[in-house]
Amino acid sequence: MAGIYVYSDKKDLAAELVGFAKGCGKRAIVLTFDERAAKDLSNSGADKVCLLKGDSELVENYGKSIAHLLAEQGAELFVVGATVSGRDIAARVAGYLDCAMVSEASSITYTDGKLVTERMMYGGSVQQSEVLEGLCVVTVRAGKFEAISGAAEVTTLEISADTRTTLVERKDIVKEGADLSVAERIVCVGMALDKREDLQIAHDLAAVLGAEVGCTRGVAEEKHWLPVEQYIGMSGAVVKPKLYLSMGVSGQIQHVFGIRDSQIIVAVNTDPKAPIFKAADYGIVGDMYQVIPLLTKTLKGA
């Protein structure tokens, strides 16, 4: 069946992508490996939900078969939720099809029958527009499109897996902090922090604000002062809180990429030239060791 094929290991994201496909006036065919997701997505407004079954528990192992399926069915577009595993499958499918692929498109539309996409480059400082023709692959992050509803037929399809890679073990990540991607307020700590114990001043402010504590990549990956899940940026968490307040964050573009959808961005930094101030709504030029405790005190008193 021709149309837009949709895949995501996150079923809400899959539903959003169906919303996109239908919004383009195309047929939407959802691929899923999860029986429960198939059931839920049967009300996503898709034209068809295809429950794929095979011999491997690793969804990435079906990349080659999905590529064959898309070619065989005359798919127009394969749009995939940009999760770790979604990105992997999408690029494998594009590789087997030797076709165009746009990763993490920030915008995707059909203009004169051609697919036009936009995406960020250079850590978010540059926007690139591309035009794609023929069967191609695009990945999209959550929250870009609205899900719709409507009944869809669910069919089951046997599909072969590449079994050279097998799952040995799966360990849930015990999140020490809250999920930053849904946090309403975030206090973000940067590399200006002298030592781990000083995180307390961030926690104190977070407590008053009702905020979660996040950090930059260096704090998590170089200093190991906060878990890796807590770092914000292009390769880490992408957040969209009402209030994002950074302390001692210089504002490398890769970090700014992760905070750009915040409603209000506040920065505290000693360096008036720090790029974070260009990305901020409000800023204080000053030492966070003086500013933050005073801010905490002021907010407490209010």
Binding site: D98, V126, Q127, S129, E130, L132, C136, D281, G283, V285
Partner: peptide, 21 residues
């Protein structure tokens, strides 16, 4: 290449940038 790049431009950051210095 399979894709055609039609435009490349700087992303405009649209923030208030009220800085108390």
């Amino acid at each position: 290449p399979k894709t055609t790049v039609s435009a490349l431009k700087a992303y405009a950051m649209n923030r208030k940038s009220v800085i108390f210095s």
